[in-house]
Design a protein around this nucleic acid. Structure first.
Lengths: 392, 392
DNA sequence: AATAAATATTTAATCGTTTCAAATATAATA
DNA sequence: TATTATATTTGAAACGATTAAATATTTATT
């Protein structure tokens, strides 16, 4: 207490010096102080004792038990006592610590988490929906975390889940280069149940994934059978194993045909709209019409839409001049300006299966051996592709 | 222990009776037992003592401290001891309780939660992205929960967040009828910081929202100024206050014009694709061409797309026959078959502001008075609307 | 006024880890 | 062998609430 006063005094001095760093007059003087105080505390680890139920009890002149009773809406508390306690709680801005509340009689609520890569990409949110629907039938709530393709975030979330008594996690892992997977090993050590949505080299774990390689092979074969010879792949973001596998599938398809693969057929254009749009523009502007491909296999539907938009701009007709194949079959792919030929992944099913395995593991008393489920994709033919019959 | 054996014996009997309910031979005999056991336990509340660090310590012949050291990767543990402990942990399938781990030295990680209504609706995921981006600058992680328009889920999630030491929550509240808001009062009682994304009658809290009424008024006025007289509003899902406010705005717009409003102008068609598509079909098939409206103000862009799709099917031209206005300005609205005229809501900004207020509250030592922020929208005119000059 | 019954409050044990000073074992050195 | 340094392990005290049992207080009943 006394120490706290000293710190405040000290801070007042600091404030005079650093007042200009404050966010524009959003706070009144008092709040400025507290705001700074918090910042300072966080930055320099000056610990301020947390307000506990005991403080409230003392100030209100009752026992901890009574305060607890108020918080839990027990009807045994006399109204006047109750009011007094509530008042003190407000005054002290008392925030009971959730974990402590649940320590004694382990919380009832069952919940699992899913870590996806991109919150605004329907591929992942559809998976999450599959997870949520299945989980609900088993009485579990689902919370979603998105790493937004940041490996550090992924680590943070695995830690968060496992320390907050979220019972298990489904993870779309970021596998970059030789990939840091220490956090996954940590989970394994504490027997924390989890399911991966992509294979991760070096770790034995439950996996539910799609067969990207076969998927792309199918798409390429369809184009080759349709008479296409000048085919390219517009690849996705570098750090993704989806990107890698799709490239591999593309390459692989050629080994089974009479055409030969070469590296110029892989064009990395990303999948964010602005990025892939401008990369597409650049690609076509930098080469003569005679060198245009007749077909493009896109990384995903989102990217395909950007490509189609760019092509329209360039006055290249789809599919007359160039055929386009997407990937994912998102909900609105059939509504594109040109209804999109694409590879449909069973996103919802992925989520469902992953949730199923996860919950089985959560509820098992013994450590279960890892499972591996690979789901197949389907080529959905719409209007963005056409066969070429005249060889040129 | 002995009791546990009895239960297993009892279960064996039960099993004989209910063996047919088991999932198709996925488990070996032993697992079947455990699987059923868990089910049984959950269903009838037979509590099986949880495996604790003490069990591990005892079985491994060491103290709790040593086991803890292993779990926390301290380097002071002799390798053989470590291995032995890890082995026992696996054998017992020991899962340390997260909350207990964090009890002593309050977890470092700072996290906030957001409860949205629909994980697959970009309006909300964009808000969440705004939240996440701002939160990140303050060192907070964000987890997302989606109520999927289920009020019970919303309640569950508020409880989940507050008891898992998620530091605060941003909530897109479901306000149905006279609305159950007890859970929000509970949060207030424990001074749990939260921000609402819509006004909720009867509760004083932080709110960051958009001005739906003004938004729709603007849209309707634009149509009326363009000479439209037969305007209808395709309303959204019933339980949403967005739906209500938009209807109100629509109605209100007429009171400021020379046209008169009547209830037939409000058509409830929902916002899920299948639903709004078929409702649109039904709407037009059930009336003669002469009674078609010349303009439709849609609940949101998603719905607008379904409507446009249906109209195409019916061979009604947009905007030549009917003008369409959306709502939200989602990322792909400009790429629609007919680039969509729509009302742009500052989704990202909503998220940012909400996060800002939330974190300010979290970090304040005193209880701050509630804030209310109403953000304005903008009418984005594209190609799905046109003016009518000939009066008919 | 005495007693019983109903209400309200306190006390003390408890949840399952982590922490860290002290104890002990082991290895290195004189 | 005794001494010192180093490596391991132990064990009790936290952490911050909840809860059942014990106690105190008020109200009702005779």
């Amino acid at each position: 207490m006394k120490n706290e006063k000293n710190i405040i005094a000290f801070l007042k001095i600091l404030l005079k010096k650093y007042i200009d760093f404050l966010p524009k007059k959003m706070y009144n003087r008092n709040d400025i102080l507290l705001y700074r105080f918090n910042n300072f505390k966080n930055r320099f680890g000056v610990l301020m004792r947390r307000i506990t139920i005991e403080d409230v009890a003392k100030k209100a002149g009752v026992s901890k038990g009574t305060v607890s009773a108020v918080m839990n809406a027990k009807k045994t508390v006399k109204p006047e006592t109750r009011d007094q306690i509530l008042k003190v709680m407000k005054e002290l801005n008392f925030r009971p610590k959730g974990v402590a509340r649940n320590l004694k009689n382990g919380t009832q609520d069952k919940s699992i988490g899913i870590i996806i890569k991109d919150l605004n990409y329907s591929f992942y949110t559809t998976i999450a929906t599959g997870v949520a629907d299945y989980a609900k039938t088993k009485g579990y709530s689902v919370i979603v975390a998105s790493s937004e393709n940041d490996h550090e975030s992924e680590i943070k979330f695995t830690h968060l889940f496992s320390t907050k008594d979220i019972k298990g996690a489904i993870i779309a892992p970021l596998v970059e280069g030789s990939s840091e997977i220490e956090h996954l090993f940590k989970l394994k050590m504490i027997n924390y149940p989890f399911v991966l949505l992509e294979d991760v080299k070096g770790i034995q774990a439950n996996v539910v994934a799609i067969d990207n390689i076969k998927a792309i092979k199918k798409a390429v074969k369809y184009l080759i059978d349709g008479g296409h010879t000048k085919i390219v792949h517009f690849a996705g973001p570098p750090a993704s194993s989806h990107t890698e596998e799709r490239i591999e599938g593309f390459r692989y398809a050629f080994s089974e045909s009479s055409l030969v693969f070469n590296n110029d057929m892989i064009v990395s254009i990303g999948s964010r709209h602005e990025e892939s749009y401008s990369n597409t523009m650049a690609y076509f502007k930098s080469r003569p019409r005679s060198e245009y491909p007749t077909a493009i296999v896109c990384f995903n539907d989102q990217q395909a839409l950007s490509v189609i938009t760019a092509l329209k701009e360039l006055d290249i007709k789809v599919p007359d001049d160039i055929s386009i194949i997407g990937n994912d079959d998102v909900a609105y792919a059939k509504l594109y300006p040109v209804p999109l030929t694409t590879i449909s992944a069973p996103q919802y099913e992925i989520g469902r299966r992953a949730a199923e395995i996860l919950i089985k593991n959560i509820e098992s008393h013994t450590l279960l051996p890892p499972e591996r489920v690979i789901l197949q994709t389907e080529l959905i033919i719409r209007e963005s592709t056409r066969a070429i019959n005249k060889k040129d």
